[in-house]
């Protein structure tokens, strides 16, 4: 495998309050991928990002960003990293142009007005460049924060809850921007608790719960592996028990015998359903309606986090 662009090894963090926010997290991010870190509030997503970006000091563990240790070789490491934090925090009295150029300088890069202009245009901020930040709407301020993070041309971009409290238009813009960045070879790590966002954007997904990374998987594999499809048949006549002749499909009887439910993996071939329906026809079992449902990432996520809770309880 190619050398990971970000390598997190055995990362732990305990706060002075005694809270253990991260427990020995290991994670490798591939160059150029979009990685979504999913998890409920307080799972440790922001702590993880904050450590990589240098805002929080790790209690234990090593982080290597593009070959540079984030502590020993922090200059080189941080130059490669851009961060858009969750909280809206801007220099209200500055103009958009000044604040974005400030960020580039802060990260030690030579002035490049053409690059800043490109970033501002991509974010629909160009017309607002002379405006003071305090005159902008919340959505525009978030765009400013993204522009600041992109000002120094980072190779790894962290987006912490990028679309929390953001309107539909901005969310769509943001997704387009992220895809555009990926095409330029930027690696993107985003945290979210909007499952649809991860489902829409990510190449790979990591699920974090209570400071532990409980799963890392390709999105497609994850959906295939854990994704189940369900066929529900609403019967015309309720039944007391499932006939033995239908045993091979391992059906479940639901809704007081009014519904038959057939669960199957999306990975299998789909010849089983016609076979099931044919056999039911032979047995004279009539149904008045049917529907199929594919489990979303959300279902997968909820089941993962809840089984985990059950296991540790």
């Amino acid at each position: 495998m190619m050398m990971p662009v970000l390598s997190i090894q055995n990362l732990s963090k305990s706060y002075a309050s005694g809270l253990q926010a991260l427990k020995g997290v290991n994670l490798e991010i591939r160059k150029g991928e979009i990685f979504a870190l999913l998890g409920p509030n307080g799972a440790g997503k922001t702590t993880l990002i904050s450590i990589v970006c240098g805002i929080v000091t790790a209690s234990e563990g090593v982080v290597i960003a593009d070959g540079h240790d984030i502590v020993r070789d922090y200059r080189a490491a941080r130059t490669k990293i851009g961060l858009v934090p969750q909280e809206l925090a801007t220099d209200t009295f500055e103009t958009v142009w000044a604040t974005v150029n400030f960020s580039r300088g802060l990260f030690g890069r030579a002035p490049d007005p053409a690059h800043i202009e490109r970033v501002l245009r991509d974010l629909s901020l160009w017309e607002k460049r002379k405006d003071r930040i305090m005159t902008l709407s919340g959505g525009m301020k978030r765009r400013v924060m993204i522009a600041k993070a992109l000002a120094h041309e980072p190779e790894i971009l962290f987006l912490d809850e990028p679309t929390a409290g953001v309107d539909v238009e901005l969310r769509r813009d943001m997704w387009a921007l992220v895809r555009g960045l990926r095409e330029k070879g930027v690696t993107i790590i985003l945290t979210t608790h909007y499952i649809e966002e991860a489902e829409e954007m990510a190449d790979r997904i990591g699920v974090i719960s209570k400071g532990e990374l409980i799963l890392v998987e390709d999105k497609a594999t994850l959906m295939k592996k854990l994704g189940k499809k369900q066929l529900t048949l609403q019967l015309q006549e309720p039944m007391d028990a499932i006939p033995a002749a239908l045993g091979q499909w391992q059906l479940a009887l639901k809704a007081n015998g009014n519904e038959l439910e057939y669960s199957f993996d999306t990975g299998e071939d789909h010849t089983e359903i016609p076979a099931l329906l044919r056999r039911m026809g032979e047995l004279g079992i009539a149904f008045k309606d049917l529907n199929t449902r594919q489990s979303s990432l959300e279902d997968i996520f909820v089941s993962l986090v809840t089984t985990r809770k059950g296991a540790t309880a």
Partner: peptide, 10 residues
């Protein structure tokens, strides 16, 4: 809260 940028800068 803008201190995040200072702390994450090289």
């Amino acid at each position: 809260g803008t201190i995040y940028e200072l702390l994450s800068a090289p």
